[in-house]
């Protein structure tokens, strides 16, 4: 099948890529653009490890076609830190031990980043609801919830 040209903004940089229509966005990000922070867990839209930020919304990049991202604004976990250092959600995951093996973490971070813009001052229940598209097999979620709470506080003070 002929490849199609797509271009989008990824973590603040303009990128061009040639993709087959059937190519999933997560593969373009990981394999063509070599940004392997975004993980593939289940490949079936359940686990959230592949979560990216697409036009200001959290989506599972294993269930979006790369051709559908043409013209979009994309952010992956690599786009969170800036010249001043780690993003508040990253710092909070370190402080609260919000990870063990780390496999789910990129998805957790980029989802938490968006969730805290949707709801800057969430209750614990709202955090659990807002993060419910991301599975973790290690932590039992307690420290992930704490990390999101801590990040919320930091971001509100900033």
């Amino acid at each position: 099948m002929a490849k199609q040209h797509v271009s989008f903004n990824l973590n603040g940089k303009h990128v061009d890529a040639l993709v087959e229509p059937r190519e999933l966005l997560v593969h373009t990000i990981r394999e063509t653009l070599s940004l392997t922070g975004t993980h593939i867990g289940c490949e079936s839209s359940h686990c959230g490890a592949c979560t990216v930020d697409l036009d200001g919304k959290s989506v599972k990049s294993c269930t979006v076609l790369a051709v559908q991202a043409d013209g979009a604004e994309l952010k992956t976990v690599e786009g969170l830190a800036d010249a001043d250092g780690l993003h508040a959600v990253q710092q909070a995951f370190i402080e609260e031990h919000g990870l063990q093996c780390g496999f789910c973490t990129p998805g957790m971070l980029i989802r938490a980043y968006r969730f805290l813009q949707e709801n800057p001052n969430p209750t614990e229940e709202e955090i659990r609801w807002g993060m419910s598209g991301n599975l973790c097999r290690c932590t039992g979620y307690q420290n992930i919830v704490k990390a999101v709470q801590t990040a919320a506080q930091t971001l509100q003070q900033a």
Binding site: T51, K60, G133
Partner: peptide
């Protein structure tokens, strides 16, 4: 229905 990411699509 589903979860936040799925509900966005």
């Amino acid at each position: 229905v589903a979860d936040p990411q799925v509900r966005n699509r």
